[in-house]
Computed example of a mutant assay.
Amino acid sequence: MYLLHHDEVLRDYDIGLGFAPRGHKRFSGDGRTPEGTYIIDRRNPNSKYHLSIGVSYPNKYDDAFASTQGKSPGGDIFIHGRPPEYRDGRRDWTAGCIAVTDDEIEQIYAMVRDGTPITIRP
């Protein structure tokens, strides 16, 4: 993951994704991480994953697609740290979130403000 200021890379991070890391998140429980452009829309200083910042998934297009399939798009997508059971460095263990180390989420949490755009690409 790259943390940018305009076109300048300020920091880069190795990340963990959803347990089904290929393809755009479509439905609740599919284990995928959303792909596309969203915004950082909330923060949780009391997260069970150390700290977390929220991603605005689902958007109106995600909602509409899931609705046509008679399913829920899911939600509660965050960038967050790791709980004790995943501090061994295992990758792609989340239910659709983006995981970094606890030290890294502290940096990100301090640098990124609500309203910041985030683009998630395959």
Rank of each mutant, 00 (worst) to 15 (best):
L3V: 14
L4I: 11
L4H: 12
H6S: 15
D7W: 12
D7E: 15
D7L: 13
E8P: 00
Y13T: 07
Y13P: 11
D14C: 06
L17H: 01
F19Q: 11
P21G: 04
P21R: 02
P21T: 02
F27D: 01
D30Y: 06
D30F: 08
R32P: 00
P34V: 02
G36M: 05
G36Y: 02
T37R: 15
T37S: 14
Y38H: 07
I39R: 11
I39S: 04
N44I: 05
P45Q: 07
Y49R: 14
H50S: 10
I53E: 02
G54R: 02
V55M: 04
V55P: 04
Y57Q: 08
Y57G: 05
Y57R: 06
N59I: 12
D62Y: 10
F65G: 04
S67Y: 10
G70I: 03
K71Y: 01
S72T: 06
P73G: 04
P73R: 02
D76Q: 13
F78E: 09
I79Q: 00
I79W: 05
H80N: 04
P83M: 10
P83K: 05
P84L: 03
E85S: 13
R87Y: 08
G89N: 02
R90V: 13
W93G: 13
W93Q: 13
A95I: 06
A95Q: 07
G96Y: 02
C97R: 01
C97H: 00
A99T: 03
E106C: 09
I108L: 12
I108A: 03
Y109R: 00
A110W: 14
M111N: 11
V112I: 15
G115A: 09
G115S: 12
T116M: 10
T116Y: 07
P117Y: 05
P117S: 07
T119C: 09
I120L: 06
R121N: 11
